[in-house]
């Protein structure tokens, strides 16, 4: 997929990165990434993937913009209050980069619709705010055989991990109990935390697309914004995991 003259200009500074180059930029142009959630994590992830020239973004969010979202959800502004987040996300991303396609779905993610929602996607950014839906997303990534770029935050703390189905530990290996119902309390957060973690998720997606670097597979990256430390921890695929069962039962992860 050849780059246009305008694209060569727009992406010049990143094409100059040896690990990207024209070849990497063309891979980005051909790629499609799904973003589950247009909130705190989804905002920076979508903005950076859009700016980097990922050819197609599919953004799923069922919610409406509320004033209480605006300390962290930088896809939306005060004037968007009352609009579906999917709509305001599409507006700002299209203004940022009209050369890419931005498709949005105002929908709840359920086990019944993931195949349709993420059809054609090469990877999914987990920008959700609920453990239960994360399990649905994790299972969808397993079923579709595409990576899941996980992120989560609380206050000044954040975490990220990348799941490559059949190759690395999945979210269910980490969280262990997919069946447990969880409450959805209002989780405190300062916008810079999803800013950091959403950017890590976008970086992981870009690295996966261009096929360079080391992904956060079998590693949980933790960020402590008060101590200002990053630490990564080794995670193992969990034998008997109900989501990546075929992988772990297949032998040697």
């Amino acid at each position: 997929m050849t780059l246009t003259k305008r694209e060569l200009q727009r992406y010049d500074r990143q094409i100059r990165i040896p690990q990207i180059g024209t070849e990497g930029q063309e891979k980005l142009k051909k790629a499609c990434i799904g973003i589950a959630g247009a909130g705190g994590l989804g905002s920076p992830a979508a903005l950076y993937l859009c700016a980097a020239g990922v050819g197609k973004l599919v953004i799923i969010d069922r919610d409406i913009v509320e004033t209480g979202n605006l300390n962290r959800q930088i896809l939306h502004s005060q004037a968007d209050e009352g609009k579906p987040k999917a709509v305001s996300a599409q507006e700002i991303l299209t203004r940022l980069n009209p050369d890419i396609r931005v498709e949005v779905r105002q929908a709840e993610i359920t086990p019944d619709n993931t195949a349709e929602l993420f059809s054609g996607c090469h990877g999914i950014v987990d920008a959700l705010d609920s453990l239960e839906t994360r399990y649905v997303l994790n299972q969808a990534a397993m079923d579709l055989g595409i990576p899941l770029f996980h992120g989560a935050v609380n206050g000044f703390e954040g975490q990220a991990m990348t799941v490559i189905p059949g190759q690395s530990a999945c979210l269910c290996c980490l969280y262990k109990e997919p069946e447990r119902k969880t409450d959805r309390p209002l989780i405190p957060v300062i916008g810079v935390t999803p800013g950091v973690i959403g950017s890590v998720q976008a970086a992981e997606a870009i690295k996966f697309i261009i096929g360079r670097g080391n992904l956060l597979t079998n590693r949980l990256l933790r960020y402590d914004g008060l101590a200002m430390t990053f630490h990564d921890f080794g995670i193992n695929p969990r034998p008997g995991c109900s989501h990546c069962r075929s992988f772990t039962e297949g032998g040697t992860p």
């Binding site: 609920s130 992120g151 954040g158």
Partner: peptide, 27 residues
């Protein structure tokens, strides 16, 4: 490195570091 499973029985020696990590769910 993850201590799962049987975390509580893992032997420790002088100089070891244990991280207690709360898994996050906010977005």
């Amino acid at each position: 490195k993850t201590a799962h499973p049987d975390e509580l029985r893992r032997p420790t020696v002088d100089g070891d570091e244990i991280h207690v990590v709360t898994l996050l769910s906010g977005g």
